Computed example of a mutant assay.
Amino acid sequence: MTSSRPDTVTSSEPPTAAAGRRAPARKGKDGRGNPYPYLFYVPAGIVYTVVFLVPTIMAFYFSMTRWTLFDSTFVGLENFTDFFAEQNLRIGFQNTLIYAVTTSGLKVVLGMALGVVLTSRLKMRGFLRSVVFFPVLVSTVAVGITFSVLLKPDTGLVNKALALVGISGPDWLGDANTALLSVALVDVWKGVGLATVIYIAGMMSIPRDYYQAVAVDGGSAWHRFRYVTLPLSWPATNSVIILSFIGGLRSFDLIWTMTRGGPGFTSDVIASIIYKQYQAGFFGLSTAGNVILFIVVTALVVPLTRFLSAREVAA
């Protein structure tokens, strides 16, 4: 008599082998799986192509043409040679670099100082944070018009306030020696709030254990700033420098509102020279100027970013 057993289907593979046949997860450069399919990148890619790549390619093309709204004539590199022959170009390049370095440097110093103060146990620090950030929300044109009135030599409140303490204020925007610096200080006043917010975010992410360790070792407030806050807030410093420097190189609206490049051409920057070419109807020439400005900004910012990133890794 034979015993009957239900037939069982056996597999030569262990149970884990079948599970291992699943499609492997996509891996990034760090070796970890990518949780998102590449299809998710398509919308961002389309927006980037339409908003950035296509206008950039068109700008490079039209910079080599003499164009109007309805037609264009290819002229090669003639627009670039004419732009470099512009008599005020040297002053524009010089002022652009001075303006960018001055504004970015002051925003770093003042933003870090305000960040330290506004992350302390100061009373009403929430209100003070709002006050510091408020100028960022105001229109740049409105700020320029307001300070143009405040800095007038005879009727401006700035010179009137200086007169109360016996100081004769200069013509801030009408003097070639003070015009560009005056606009740069207004730019710092308007933009330091954003730098402060970046620093506040960076400083609040620093673990408190580091400060406690310095306190245990008998360190003062200076030691906490020098050995903890300053090096560990370097990512914030990196961001502020890059954003402020790019903004300074591209700055136009505040300078044009307050001085229009004057007196004479002493406060002209690259962007204001380009705009004057647009006003004169030289569209191809001004487009070539925009391409040159794009190349200059890229040539300065890319190595600066690499340098600052290397410092960040070392820190």
Rank of each mutant, 00 (worst) to 15 (best):
T266I: 02
T259G: 10
A23R: 15
V192E: 04
L185H: 04
P24H: 04
S244A: 12
L304G: 09
A315Y: 08
S104V: 01
I198E: 07
K29Q: 06
F283A: 09
F93Q: 05
S233T: 02
G169P: 03
S286A: 15
Q277K: 14
Y36M: 12
A236H: 07
T237V: 00
E78K: 01
M203S: 05
I292N: 03
D268V: 01
G191M: 05
G261H: 08
T305C: 09
L162A: 14
P24T: 06
I46G: 08
V302S: 03
L162C: 13
N88V: 14
T257E: 13
Q277P: 04
G191Q: 10
T196Y: 10
K160F: 11
R260F: 12
L137M: 12
R306Y: 05
T49V: 11
T10L: 15
I167W: 13
E13L: 13
P35Y: 11
N95D: 06
L53M: 08
L194R: 11
A184L: 02
K190Q: 15
F283P: 04
S239M: 15
W222S: 13
T103D: 01
A18G: 09
V117K: 02
G218I: 09
V197M: 14
P170S: 03
T73G: 13
S182R: 09
T259S: 07
M64V: 00
F134Q: 04
G20H: 02
R125Y: 01
R21F: 07
F225G: 01
I270Q: 10
K160A: 14
G115D: 02
S148A: 12
V188K: 04
I98L: 13
V188I: 09
L114R: 04
T65D: 11
L304E: 06
A314L: 15
A17G: 09
V131M: 04
S130K: 08
D253G: 11
T266Y: 06
N290W: 06
P263I: 13
L230R: 07
R208S: 14
R66N: 15
G166A: 01
L97Y: 12
L162W: 13
L300Y: 10
T237C: 08
G166Y: 02
E86C: 09
Q277R: 15
V228P: 05
T8N: 04
L89A: 08
V301T: 14
L151K: 14
V188A: 07
R129I: 01
F265G: 11
I206F: 06
A179D: 06
G264C: 05
A142E: 03
W67V: 06
R5T: 10
V47M: 03
L53D: 00
V131Y: 04
Y38F: 12
T155F: 11
L150P: 04
F70I: 12
V186H: 03
F74N: 03
L308W: 01
A201H: 02
G105N: 03
I167M: 08
T8E: 08
F245Q: 07
L122D: 05
W67P: 06
